[in-house]
Structures are given as structure tokens and as C-alpha cells.
Design a protein around this nucleic acid. Structure first.
Length: 287
DNA sequence: AGCCAGGGACTCC
DNA sequence: GGAGTCCATGGC
């Protein structure tokens, strides 16, 4: 096992040739939408009001940012992914195939509130459109980030001024009304992010399901990507297809989620992302 | 042109 | 609690 080499500098994090960190795998695996490829070897990532420019080549990855500690945590650099992958491989022999499709994936520790809004937009939508709608939302309601072409994700305060018509103009479609209702609820003490973070996964999901536009799948995604809960298994159309690679018995998405959590337990969040990525790549590249 | 997308709300029973 | 239906929009 190669030990991960991470160097923290004043305005930069350097990751040297590590199989468990591939910025393309990390960003293009469907967990995050507020990023942009700026050239063949660079990405720009926006997490709420913080940002980083990532430059990579065959030997290393450099994360340029004013917020080194924030992005060290954002990219989950305290977690040993070799250990997680070995664990999955050891316990589930067939899993190597899914890991190979995205060796460098890491589960980002995304901003909770941004994740809630983002995944409401994601429902019954495709990734390119989701990204577009969210970028337009930032441009319309967020604050310009100095010395860049980008905008911060809008604050709750900024979004509270939006109308259904505003969201329709972004292309949010029937999700516009859900966003308006959810933004209202998020402003209450009951739904403060601080309070939500203290809940158990079960309690958190129950609370999230009270938000308009949040059903079982979106609640699982928010819990996983926005609250780092690894004991959930979001089931979307791709994971449903994946289920039928294993079983023939028809099941509801709810039951499919239980089925997978029962198998992968506390590794569910990781397993789900590797499996989802595999399914996505199969459809894209006909692997 | 028509199916599909990181599904959910709503309405029946 | 399960099954059906409707939903905006644009990518492909």
C-alpha cells in the first residue's frame, strides 16, 4: 500500500501521485455540481463562499486556495481510502470491478445547506442541467468572487428574495415552488443546519423529508454528501439498474436501499458512490 | 422525435 | 403502505 503524500503549504495543498485521489474521479462522479472545468488540466470548485483552483498532471495534484484547512477537510484528506477500498474488496470479492471504474473517488464533505438546495434541483433531472441551473442561481443571487469569473453560492438570505418566476427563469421547472417552500423552512430555528448536524441519521432523514422537494432519495443524498452520513444508500435510476445486476426480484426503491445498506452497513455511502460511478461510466463508455 | 434524467407530490384505495 | 399519474425542461 502506498502511503498518501499530502503537503500543506500556505495557499496550496499538494497531493503526490496517489491512487486514492483523482480530481476528475472526485468531481465527475455525480456527488457535486458547483465546479467547472477551466482547462484540460484544471478545475474551479466553489463550496458555498469558498473556492479552490485545482491543477493536476500525471504526477501530482495542486489545490490552490486561501482556505487550506477548509479544503483539506472538504476533500476528506483525513480519511484513508486505501483502507476503505481494501475493506470493500476483502468482504465483497466482486467489488473490485466497481472500484476500478473510479479508483480516485473520495466523498466530499460538502456544505450542508448548499447540498440541500442542490439536490432538490437534482430530482428527475440530468447532471448537465442541474449544474447549469445552479450556476445560473449563483450568478443571479450570489455574490461575485473577486478576481474570478465565478459567483459564490447564494446565502439563504439572498435566496429568500427569489420568487417562483425567478427560479422558473433559471429553468428549475416544477421544482421552483419546492425551492421557495424549502427556503422558508430552512430559515426557521427547527431547520438550522446546526441543529440538523446533531441529529442521528434516522432523525436527520425524518426532518429532511419534511422539506418540499425532498423524498427518500434526495434525503439520502443530502445525508450522505451534505452531512457525511455513511449509513445511507441513495437509490436513483442508475442504482436501480445496478440492483437488477444482482437480483431479479422486483422491489421498490425504498426496499432496494434497505437491501444495499444491509449488505454494506457503515460502508454504504462509499459503496454507493463507487457503484453509481461504475454505472455512469458503463453507460458513457460502454465498458 | 421521443425517451430519459442522482424523483417527488398528490390522489386514490 | 402500495400503485398510478402528473410534472418542466433540455440533453441526447
Amino acid at each position: 500500500m502506498i502511503n498518501m503524500k499530502v503537503i500543506k503549504e500556505k495557499d496550496c495543498i499538494i497531493i503526490e501521485n496517489d491512487e486514492s485521489f483523482n480530481i476528475v474521479d472526485i468531481l465527475e462522479c455525480g456527488q457535486v455540481f458547483s465546479y467547472k472545468k477551466t482547462s484540460d488540466d484544471a478545475y474551479f470548485v466553489i463550496s458555498f463562499d469558498k473556492y479552490a483552483k485545482i491543477i493536476f498532471d500525471k504526477t501530482n495534484t495542486k489545490i490552490f486556495t486561501k482556505d487550506v484547512e477548509y479544503f483539506y477537510n472538504y476533500f476528506d484528506l483525513n480519511t484513508d481510502y486505501e483502507k476503505i477500498k481494501n475493506n470493500l474488496k476483502t468482504n465483497f470479492g466482486y467489488f473490485s470491478k466497481y472500484l476500478d471504474a473510479g479508483k480516485g473517488i473520495r466523498l466530499l464533505k460538502q456544505d450542508s445547506y448548499q447540498t440541500i438546495i442542490s439536490f432538490i434541483v437534482s430530482a428527475n433531472n440530468n447532471i448537465k442541467r442541474i449544474k447549469n441551473i445552479l450556476f445560473k442561481m449563483s450568478e443571479k443571487f450570489g455574490s461575485k468572487i473577486e478576481n474570478t469569473d465565478f459567483y459564490a453560492f447564494p446565502t439563504l438570505q439572498q435566496l429568500s428574495k427569489a420568487t417562483v418566476t425567478d427560479f422558473n427563469l433559471l429553468g428549475a421547472g416544477y421544482r421552483s415552488e419546492y425551492l421557495i417552500e424549502t427556503i422558508k423552512l430552512l430559515q426557521t430555528e427547527e431547520f438550522s443546519i446546526k441543529n440538523l448536524k446533531n441529529l442521528t441519521t434516522k432523525e436527520l432523514k425524518k426532518k429532511l423529508l419534511m422539506l418540499k422537494g425532498v423524498g427518500p432519495k434526495v434525503a439520502d443524498c443530502i445525508a450522505l454528501f451534505g452531512f457525511s452520513r455513511m449509513d445511507v444508500f441513495p437509490v436513483d435510476t442508475w442504482i436501480r439498474k445496478a440492483y437488477y445486476l444482482f437480483e431479479t426480484k422486483k422491489m421498490s426503491d425504498d426496499k432496494i436501499s434497505d437491501y444495499f445498506v444491509n449488505i454494506y452497513k457503515d460502508l454504504s455511502g462509499y459503496a454507493q458512490q463507487y457503484l453509481y460511478n461504475y454505472m455512469l461510466n458503463v453507460s458513457k463508455n460502454n465498458l
